[in-house]
Amino acid sequence: MRARVAEPWVEVPLQRFVDDARVLFALLLHPSGQVLGQFGFTRAVDVMAACALGAAIHASASQLGRELDGKPFRELYHAGRHRQIFIAETPTIRGPLILLTAFDTESSLGLVQVFFRNFCDMLRTAVPPVDEQPPVFTGDLERDLNRSLAILFGRARPPLADRGPSHPSE
C-alpha cells in the first residue's frame, strides 16, 4: 500500500517513514486538522475523524506542557493492548505539522522515534519555498479539509503547481 498525499512534496518522506518504521497508519496534518498525507486509511470519514482527534490531542498536550513545563510537549505516546499511537510535531518553513501514527508489535516506540527524526529531516529538505506554491490553506477549514480529502481519495486533482514529476501523465 502506498501513502496518499494532498501535497506531493510530503509523499517521499511519508512513504519512507512508513516503510522504515513499519507502522500500520500514518497521518500528516496541519495543527488546524487539515490532512496533508495519509497511509493505511481506506475511508475519508476515518481520516477526517483521526485528523480532528489528532489535532485536538496535540493542542491539549501542547497546552498541558505549557502549564506544567513552560513549553509545549512535542511528542505524545500511548500504548494500548495491541496497538500504540505516537503523535509528534515537526517544524517546517511553512509552520509546524503533526505526524500521527499507529503501530503494533511489528515496530516499537524506539524505531518510530528514530525514523521520525529521519522523517523530519527529509520533510525539511522536501518542503518547497513558500513563494513557489499556492497557499495550502485558504482559511476556510471546512472547504480546505474537503479539498484535501477529495485529493487523497482521488476525487479531485492537486493544484497545478503541486503536480511536478510525481504526476508525469498530467
Binding site: 516499537s108 524506539g110 524505531l111 522515534q113 528514530v114
Partner: peptide, 12 residues
Amino acid sequence: PVIAALAAALYR
C-alpha cells in the same frame, strides 16, 4: 538511541 532501537528490533 538509534543503536538501541535497531538492536532491540534485531534481537527481537
